[in-house]
Design a protein around this nucleic acid. Structure first.
Lengths: 338, 338
DNA sequence: AAATAATGCGCAATCGATTGTGCAAATATA
DNA sequence: TATATTTGCACAATCGATTGCGCATTATTT
């Protein structure tokens, strides 16, 4: 096994001091008036020996690691996987590498993960928070590790966040159903405490309200699982007068609902119309293709990284930005016109 | 902004030396005969001040970072996202954190990513290789950073790998079609150079061969995209005598094929049967649900992490392990019996 | 009580890179 | 030629944690 190269070994081999080697290899040659000849010699030796600087040592000295921590509730979920993909890509553009923590929707994992990231001295953190309490995140942000929330946020937080306007998205979805003549619309929601759920429910209710259908509101369900969609749909369809349309708050809920509808022998959209949230290529290949609200995850990811890096690189306090992006309705064939 | 705590600051506040504080906080108290009272005092102070050790300093000193580098060709791809998820989970069980690099199927990105990981002093690397040449990976492995390949491997490599037995998987799929009475089976493949593709093609051919259908072999396509599946299926269906069954080498290819089949007004499985590779929950919700070959990605991920950590933690050379796991056929309704 | 052993902890070097300061030697100026 | 500049580079401290070695105390043994 070859010895790993360090500044010291290069210094010995070239006869220059460690200081000089460092300045050459970190591009500070001009600033420190190192002669062209010396630069040449040292650079060659470094290239020849395949020198890779230790970011540990560098980070220790400079307290910058060019690393960003990313906490995601479930990387298996295609929605989050897409977001992660974009964030990794964007971060790389700016020279940052990602340490990824999968919190599995557990607040304890989130805290542990954050601790691990802090001890790794990440320069900043992007997080889809699981918990209800942003206090400790705000504390970290205040102590000079910038934190940006994505997808979910908190009612009263000073932290930066980027997310979809879930309220608008829900209104678009429900309006679409109402405009198509539906007035008996079941809403199957995800985890009730989470901000996206709350906002989508609010959108659902407001859409009904403005159309004078407030008394028709029916909200059921309690998490983002396939089972939840299945069970709630089963229940709903068991009543004599079942809903003519379903607003499913996620792809997973949608899948459960589709299964239940098919089992009961009903047809989408003839018997039951359905609108879902989140985009996914597979939705185009279901029969019928599912009308859904698309979240602009590309923009969410890009903005989050930009915000974070601004805060990291400008030491003068960049003020927190709280951004909600407009969603977009993708109309397919899962809604009938009555 | 509060000052960050270090051994030194705790040392000052408690009156003990940095050495003693270090030994207490790293659980070496007994070994170095630190008195219970001292342990108590130091631990309390550390807890109170919310001390988090710097893994940079620790890593620099001990040359262990408890970090594993993971290189994936595309985290957007649900198949890889699932693998990543498992690897993150397993690594965490052993106290390791993951630095994730998305290589976007580019060998250059892979090399860059590896360099970045090396300079971060990761303890080991798990990689789904993009390139054709394992030489530089082997070099790294030899220089004491263990490398484990997953999903793809190389013909003649000394590196450890864990992957699915793609040959077997393909045989299972094609045998299933043949057993159902099909003899005109089109194979739409992915990137031809990649090992999984080669092995699946070999399986396809051998299955035909052992049933005396060698002359019926038809292999088309050249990448793992939806477009590829679509185009090749369109072409195939345009002939008077179109294949009665399709063996699609991935979910993406499958989706393209499904689209083409639907557009031509044909029905699955009545007119065209189809079998795909890789599992995905959505496949159960297509109409009909798609019969496919499931890769044991849980086991792949777990084994990869175990192998890697064995190599990391036992300094005595653990010999390389090259493992192929059996796939499994999930029979649904996309194959007709003739 | 003297000798021996055990206990409790500190000193200081080290990992690899960065960077403010300073000192020769070379060059320019007077 | 003597002085003032500039050029080119080295010294050494520092980031935060680890660890071999050694030195006082205190406790035990004879």
């Amino acid at each position: 096994m070859k010895k790993k190269d360090t500044l010291l070994s290069i210094s010995k081999r070239t006869g220059f001091s460690v200081a000089t080697v460092s300045r050459v290899l970190s591009g500070q040659a001009v600033k420190y008036r190192i002669s062209a000849k010396t630069v040449q010699l040292i650079s060659e030796e470094a290239k020849k020996s395949n020198y890779v600087p230790s970011l540990l040592a560098k980070g220790l000295r400079t307290s910058k690691t060019h690393t960003i921590g990313l906490l995601i509730p479930s990387i298996e979920n295609p929605y989050f996987a897409n977001i992660a993909s974009i964030i990794i890509f964007e971060a790389k553009k700016f020279g940052y590498t990602i340490v990824l923590v999968d919190t599995i929707e557990s607040e304890e994992n989130e805290r542990e993960g954050i601790a691990s990231l802090l001890s790794r001295k990440v320069d900043g953190i992007v997080v889809v928070p699981c918990g209800q309490d942003p206090a400790y995140l705000e504390e970290i942000d205040r102590q000079d590790i910038p934190v940006v929330l994505i997808d979910r946020y908190f009612d009263t937080t000073s932290l930066s966040y980027v997310c979809t306007n879930n309220y608008k998205g829900a209104r678009m979805a429900v309006n679409h159903l109402i405009d198509s003549g539906h007035d008996n619309i079941l809403c199957i929601r995800g985890v009730p405490q989470s901000m996206p759920t709350k906002e989508r429910v609010r959108g659902y209710l407001d859409a009904l309200l403005t159309h004078g259908l407030a008394d028709k509101a029916r909200i059921v369900g309690d998490d983002f699982s396939i089972q939840n969609g299945y069970v709630e749909t089963k229940l709903a369809l068991s009543h004599r007068q079942h809903p003519s349309a379903i607003f499913a708050m996620s792809n997973t809920i949608l899948l459960g609902a589709v299964k239940a509808i098919r089992e009961s022998g009903l047809k989408i959209p003839t018997d039951v119309s359905i609108v879902s949230f989140d985009n996914n290529i597979y939705l185009d290949y279901l029969d019928p293709a599912i009308t859904r609200v698309n979240q602009p995850i590309n923009e969410v990811g890009m903005l989050a990284v930009k915000l974070l890096i601004q805060r990291i690189e400008k030491s003068d306090k960049v003020s927190a930005a709280q951004i909600q992006l407009p969603p977009q309705l993708i109309v397919c064939n899962s809604v009938s016109v009555k």
